[in-house]
């Protein structure tokens, strides 16, 4: 990467008492990049983002945002970032325009720029004409776009979004991601956490985080390619449980897991395994309605990666 990193994280650790929430995490994010931290609840995503915003002090390791060390100069960091916390955290008892003016005041947006930026935020959030509504009365998608507007009034170089789309309908989520991409195109660096695997596909690069550890990093396609060692088959069969046991015992099967009402099976060679699995299931009296190759999702990658880790610790 020729350009200097906008966010640099080296060996970052956060412990709460005996619990290690973030365990020697390192990554770097270039200017204008959309970087996703992907992992289940409690995996350390929010703790990482809070350390980068200077809300929590790292136990060890270091991190810098636009050149300022987060532990040494948190106030400098805060002037250059926008942050949307996990919970919706605007003031519900303030009107839309009052929330905007409040955050504009805190971020020192003034003069002509003030009206221009507030106007922009209202436009972006689709709240033109609704300035005097109480914020608490807005529906989820509007609230969330207003929160984004408040977080970027001062045109920050870096935007931290902690689970920004939690509890928001799919249409609003898509609109939200379009806004994120626009900002990235204007050079804003975005660090976003999510546990929605489909959303992670919108990121330029990702780090998969589990129990405080980064288990994989790279572009979504890189992660999928490296995580899945072989081809992926979708198997629909009944009964599902017996099918899973049977498949796991077959030679040429690397891994198998339940995905919804079907099985995702990693095999070394798709065409060969298709025939073998069909035969094995027929012999055992398991009714297979569908066996076909599919392209892996990030969820497959995540299961493959964390499943392996779990397998190392204890036999499931």
């Amino acid at each position: 990467m020729a350009e200097a990193a906008s966010i640099l994280v080296e060996d970052l650790v956060k412990r709460f008492g005996g619990f290690t929430a973030v365990d020697h995490v390192s990554f770097r994010i270039a200017r204008g990049e959309i970087f996703g931290l992907l992992g289940p609840n409690g995996s350390g995503k929010s703790t990482t983002i809070r350390m980068l915003c200077g809300l929590l002090t790292p136990t060890s390791g270091r991190a810098s945002v636009v050149g300022f060390d987060v532990a040494e100069e948190p106030e400098k960091v805060r002037q250059h970032i926008g942050y949307m916390s996990q919970k919706f955290s605007l003031y519900n008892d303030l009107r839309v325009i009052e929330n905007l003016r409040f955050f504009a005041g805190l971020y020192g947006v003034k003069g002509d720029l003030l009206e221009e930026r507030i106007d922009w935020a209202l436009q972006m959030a689709g709240l033109k004409g609704s300035e005097t509504l109480l914020t608490g009365e807005l529906a989820g998608g509007w609230k969330q776009r207003l929160a984004l507007g408040c977080a970027v009034l001062h045109r920050p170089q870096v935007l931290f979004l902690d689970e920004p789309t939690a509890g928001v309908d799919p249409l609003s989520r898509r609109q939200f991601w379009e806004l994120i991409h626009q900002m990235s195109a204007e050079g804003v660096t975005v660090l976003v956490t999510t546990h929605y695997m489909d959303e992670a596909e919108y990121c330029n690069r990702l780090a998969l985080i589990d129990a405080g550890l980064i288990v994989a990093a790279g572009s979504p396609s890189e992660i999928k390619r490296t995580a899945i060692k072989g081809d992926l088959l979708l198997v629909e069969c009944a009964p599902l449980g017996r099918g899973l046991e049977l498949i796991k015992a077959q030679p040429g099967v690397v891994d198998a897991a339940v995905f919804g009402a079907a099985l995702h099976v990693v095999v070394s060679a798709a065409e060969k395994a298709r025939v073998e699995l069909a035969a094995a299931m027929a012999a055992a009296g398991v009714k297979a309605s569908r066996i076909e190759p599919i392209s892996p999702s990030l969820e497959d990658a995540f299961v493959a990666l964390t499943g392996r880790r779990a397998g190392n610790e204890a036999v499931q």
């Binding site: 809300l55 805060r78 916390s85 919706f88 955290s89 805190l106 971020y107 020192g108």
Partner: peptide, 11 residues
């Protein structure tokens, strides 16, 4: 009300 985190994150 959960607004403190946002407030702390401002300058």
């Amino acid at each position: 009300r959960g607004t403190m985190e946002q407030l702390i994150a401002t300058p």
